[in-house]
Write a protein that binds this DNA or RNA. Structure first.
Length: 421
DNA sequence: TCTGGGGTCCTAGGACCC
DNA sequence: TCTGGGGTCCTAGGACCC
């Protein structure tokens, strides 16, 4: 659990203002202009360029509260376009993969590389930045350390100073950690930071030098790992394989208030369908279905929120079965006369399909059902999402989320291809 | 009028069994 | 009617991440 390795070389690469940088890629004239990208439903600001940060627009800021600042300063605003960001992300990762066989894709815009044993390290690190910029056109920041936590620290400092930082020797580590706020560390959230403050631990160096057992009591085993990692002992290893998901969730805020059970059913059917499709992509079967609904907590109306789970007799990835289960839960938690704002479906207790088939007594999805789903997925892959769907998903969907400023899918949809004159 | 979405890991406590 | 201890499994909730 805590055994650490000493001679690792972890490199963290992350894309600067990733979603904004993707938008700039297709509109180079935005290069000098502040840019922000909004969350689903055009709710909050989830990505900002440095120019937008300088205007005082915080991460997660409600869009409507900053509309004035945005208009006044000619900020370019985009709804999020996850199809495009996902595609650009793949290109970035493909470029990074050429630098080392040991790579972990940590998020849509971040990856860890191990450059253990590489000679001429500084040269390689510089090359990473240059190559991603040249091949994909996305600016990245790079940080190097003997552990993931220290690579994160290096990356954060380097981003401010605009250069790649290496924290491989204890002297540079101490210098960096002395002034590094403990709350900015990877793995230290608001709750833990407050507990640390109360014990007079304010910098990363102070956390590194604290008593390990004491920190474990305060922040569980994860806190203790952070302490070890700060000391240069690698406890959080690279995840080289992308594991299958243990939970799959699809949840959305409505574009308008929803009262009727029928509308909720349409949304829940859509979300269950999406979950099922993601599940089939990883060749899994799920046995649990959770549905939740709730009102708008920011609005001064009667509040209600509830959720329920149903356990299936055997695992399935057959969309109609999952929709049926989700409806069953929905009917149990639905209360009429309430103004709903959001609903979601989460499937869990997921295992690989092969494993289920070893179980002689459970009833599997039939070959006919599998064939049906296979055909459905194929159609939607070729002709776009929702080309073919269950009738329960409805047609009008006026509860759908808003995305009024979405850019075209330049790289994944033929009709959106850029035309060069 | 307008405030996102999708994950993971860890722990405490209850249920159950012998 | 009273009484012990140890183990496993599961779940809900907390905390954190991007």
């Amino acid at each position: 659990m805590l055994s650490g390795k000493k001679d690792e070389v972890m490199v963290l690469i992350d894309c600067n203002s990733f979603y904004c940088s993707c938008e700039r890629l297709f509109q180079p004239r935005l290069a000098q202009r502040p840019v922000v990208v909004l969350s689903n439903n055009d709710g909050c600001v989830v990505s900002r360029t440095n120019e937008a940060k300088a205007l005082g627009i915080p991460m997660g800021a409600p869009y409507h509260q900053y509309k004035d600042v945005i208009i006044k300063n000619n900020v370019a605003v985009f709804s999020s376009n996850y199809t495009m960001y996902g595609d650009i992300s793949q290109r970035v990762m493909n470029t990074l993969r050429q630098f080392s066989p040991e790579m972990e894709i940590y998020s849509i815009d971040e990856a860890f590389l191990s450059l253990k044993g590489f000679r001429n390290l500084s040269h390689h690190v510089e090359q990473i930045k240059t190559r991603v910029w040249r091949d994909v056109g996305i600016p990245v920041s790079v940080g190097v350390g003997p552990t993931k936590v220290l690579a994160k620290v290096a990356n954060k400092i380097g981003k401010k100073e605009g250069r790649a930082i290496q924290l491989l020797d204890s002297k540079s580590q101490s210098a960096a950690l002395k002034n590094f706020p403990v709350e900015d560390l990877w793995g230290v959230g608001r709750r833990s930071a407050n507990k640390l403050f109360m014990n007079n631990i304010k910098t990363a160096a102070q956390l590194r030098d604290a008593n390990e057992k004491f920190i474990q009591r305060l922040m569980t085993i994860q806190g203790r790992r952070i302490v070890r990692e700060l000391k240069g002992e690698s406890c959080i290893s690279l995840e080289l394989l992308t594991e299958n998901k243990k939970n799959i969730a699809t949840t959305r805020t409505f574009g308008r208030p929803v009262f009727r059970l029928e509308d909720l059913q349409e949304a829940v059917a859509c979300h269950a369908s999406t979950c099922a499709e993601k599940l089939r992509q990883q060749n899994g079967l799920a046995r649990k279905v959770l549905v939740f609904i709730h009102t708008n907590p920011h609005k001064n109306t009667p509040q209600y929120s509830n959720s329920g789970t149903i356990k299936l007799l055997s695992g399935t990835s057959y969309t109609p079965k999952l929709i049926k289960a989700a409806f069953h839960v929905l009917r149990q938690i639905y209360k009429p006369g309430i103004e709903y704002k959001k609903c979601g479906v989460i499937i869990s207790d997921i295992r690989p399909k092969e494993q289920n088939q070893l179980d002689f007594f459970s009833s599997h999805d039939s070959p006919k059902e599998d064939g049906f789903m296979g055909a459905l997925d194929k159609i939607n892959r070729w002709h776009g999402p929702w080309t073919a769907k269950m009738a329960a998903c409805g047609i009008h969907k006026d509860w759908k989320m808003l995305s009024q400023m979405r850019s075209p899918c330049r790289t994944t949809r033929w009709s959106d291809l850029l035309v060069v004159k």
